[in-house]
């Protein structure tokens, strides 16, 4: 037997379903007539900058809805290979893009570099060791934290140090007190003041404004290159890629401490 409160609950449920149905239908029909959407798969380190780019792009393209999906580049690559509906892929390294070119998902000449991420030195806000220059890294009393050689930035760091000379590199590496498993751990150790200095991507420093950032001379620095490629013929996707490569798009990326491509 259905009691009154129970009946009321059922009616309410029915009402919710009905209203949800009619509400949900409206935007769908609207988008079919007016709005085009483009889905962008982008590396996690691009989260903040791409959100800003999306906002700016949609201001000038009111009929385009940019949908962003962030994850690590190798995860995104695996998703795309398994048929995820992406219109654009922005990777944090060439490796994942090359894999998609190899499997024929990205056309050979479609991928273009759209930014560089440079290495910088960070110290805790207090900078107890009083680090001011790149050369200070080789000072004997310094506690240095790097990313482990096994992760990409760890490799770039050692390459950069080697560029500055074997003897210098050896003295700097003798200061290493820990090889962290990822770059965020390096940031955390410096943020907590456990070591005197660390080496991270410039883009990692945006989220932690209290850190002291010391630039590495350009002649030694190693740049990680991020490539972007449209995956479909979708016109808004192509327009978004062009926007990122435009001076306006590059200026936004620079604001988030990436290095623009020439």
């Amino acid at each position: 037997m259905i009691t009154l409160p129970r009946l009321r609950k059922r009616l309410l449920l029915l009402f919710v379903f009905l209203s949800y149905g009619t509400l949900a239908c409206q935007p769908v029909t609207a988008s079919q007539t007016n709005t085009q959407s483009a889905t962008i798969f982008a590396a996690a380190s691009l989260t903040e900058s791409f959100r800003e780019l999306e906002m700016l792009f949609e201001e000038t393209h009111p009929n385009v809805d940019i949908v962003l999906n962030f994850a690590s580049s190798n995860t995104l690559r695996a998703q795309i290979e398994n048929g995820a509906p992406a219109d654009v892929f922005a990777s944090a390294n060439m490796k994942e893009m090359d894999a998609l070119i190899e499997s024929g998902i990205v056309a050979v000449d479609a991928a273009r570099p759209f930014l560089h991420n440079r290495l910088v030195i960070i110290t805790p806000a207090e900078n107890i060791a009083n680090l001011t220059t790149f050369e200070d890294l080789s000072r004997a009393d310094l506690k240095l934290v790097l990313a482990a050689e096994e992760v990409p930035i760890g490799r770039y760091t050692r390459q950069m140090l080697a560029n500055a000379g074997t003897e210098f590199s050896e003295r700097v590496l003798a200061n290493v007190v820990s090889n962290e498993s990822n770059v965020k751990q390096v940031v955390a150790k410096i943020q907590l003041g456990e070591a005197d200095a660390g080496i991270v991507y410039a883009s990692d420093t945006v989220a932690v404004p209290e850190l002291v950032v010391i630039e590495i001379p350009a002649e030694y620095n190693v740049l990680a290159t991020y490539p972007i490629a449209p995956l479909t013929d979708s016109p808004p996707a192509h327009a978004f890629v062009s926007f990122i490569l435009s001076p306006e798009g590059q200026a936004v990326l620079e604001k988030w401490r990436f290095t623009p491509v020439q």
Partner: peptide, 25 residues
Amino acid sequence: TILFAGNLEGVTQTMPLAIYLGFER
């Protein structure tokens, strides 16, 4: 260990840390 002691061969890299970081190398 990896959070508090860090990871350096012969100083703080114990067997579980060497296993974890040895994956790629």
